Simulated scan of single mutants.
Amino acid sequence: MYRTLLPGILAMAAIVVASNILVQFLFGQWLTWGAFTYPLAFLVTDVMNRVYGPAQARKVVLAGFVVGIACSFVGTQIQGEFGPLVTLRIALGSGLAFLTAQLLDVAVFDRLREGRWWRAPLTSTLIGSSVDTVLFFTIAFSSWLAVLEPGNDVAWANEALPLLGVGPVAPLWMSLALADWGVKLALALVALVPFRLIVGRLMARVA
């Protein structure tokens, strides 16, 4: 079974590492390039869940979580212009958001696996992505949780600005979260195509 999971583990690890690197590079005003790679983690989880079941999908998630912890540790050792590339709050937010959202994705998918082929991956990814976004941005940047890391100045993320430049005034981190969430929702729909193709090929091999 380990050999069958290895491609999923490697894919998840590659996505986590790539996202941790690409999150340092801006894409427009509200996003980073990491926003376009990280949602693929849900695709990997859902494919493994469909083909091998929830228990094996959780193993892939845990492997990704371990890789994420390693990436966060490395990031804390690298000094950027404003301090460590990864702060304690970012590390906590990233780890908790990933583990909670991915395990929730596995559970929701399993509950819906007997429905139409697209229902389980789409619903589980939408729910998991939403939880992931809320947890990460709230833990990492909101002024409400400053007690988690008093020495980390997140005033920049709490600057009051129009939401996405056009909406009501809100902290900057909410615009960042909303833009990130929008990308995740869009990719949840796009990912149905590779999900269908990859699952079809893997199921044929298993059979």
Results as ranks from 00 to 15, higher is better:
94 S>C: 03
95 G>H: 15
96 L>T: 03
96 L>E: 02
96 L>D: 02
97 A>D: 09
97 A>T: 05
98 F>H: 09
99 L>F: 06
99 L>R: 14
100 T>P: 10
101 A>E: 09
102 Q>E: 13
102 Q>A: 01
102 Q>I: 03
103 L>G: 00
103 L>K: 08
103 L>A: 03
104 L>A: 04
104 L>W: 04
104 L>V: 09
105 D>R: 07
105 D>H: 07
106 V>D: 02
106 V>L: 03
106 V>E: 05
107 A>W: 03
107 A>T: 08
108 V>S: 01
108 V>T: 05
108 V>N: 02
110 D>G: 06
111 R>T: 01
111 R>D: 00
111 R>F: 00
112 L>V: 07
112 L>G: 02
113 R>A: 00
114 E>K: 15
115 G>A: 05
115 G>P: 00
115 G>W: 05
116 R>M: 06
116 R>C: 00
117 W>A: 02
117 W>C: 00
117 W>H: 10
117 W>M: 06
118 W>V: 13
118 W>S: 07
118 W>M: 08
119 R>D: 05
119 R>V: 14
121 P>S: 10
123 T>G: 02
124 S>M: 09
124 S>Q: 14
124 S>C: 04
124 S>A: 11
125 T>K: 05
126 L>M: 10
126 L>W: 05
127 I>W: 01
127 I>E: 01
128 G>Y: 04
128 G>I: 11
129 S>R: 04
129 S>L: 01
129 S>Q: 05
129 S>F: 01
130 S>C: 10
131 V>N: 10
132 D>V: 06
132 D>H: 10
133 T>F: 09
133 T>R: 15
134 V>E: 09
135 L>C: 06
136 F>M: 15
136 F>G: 12
136 F>N: 12
137 F>S: 11
138 T>G: 01
138 T>V: 14
138 T>Q: 08
139 I>Y: 06
139 I>Q: 09
140 A>L: 11
140 A>P: 07
141 F>W: 00
141 F>H: 04
141 F>K: 00
141 F>I: 02
145 L>V: 12
145 L>H: 08
145 L>M: 09
145 L>R: 13
146 A>L: 05
147 V>Y: 11
148 L>E: 04
148 L>K: 08
148 L>R: 08
148 L>F: 01
149 E>G: 07
149 E>A: 14
150 P>W: 07
150 P>M: 13
150 P>H: 06
151 G>C: 09
151 G>I: 10
151 G>Q: 11
152 N>S: 12
152 N>E: 10
152 N>P: 11
153 D>L: 03
153 D>P: 02
153 D>C: 01
154 V>N: 11
155 A>H: 15
155 A>L: 15
156 W>N: 08
156 W>Q: 12
156 W>K: 13
156 W>M: 13
157 A>I: 04
157 A>G: 05
157 A>N: 12
157 A>W: 14
158 N>V: 10
158 N>S: 06
158 N>F: 08
158 N>M: 08
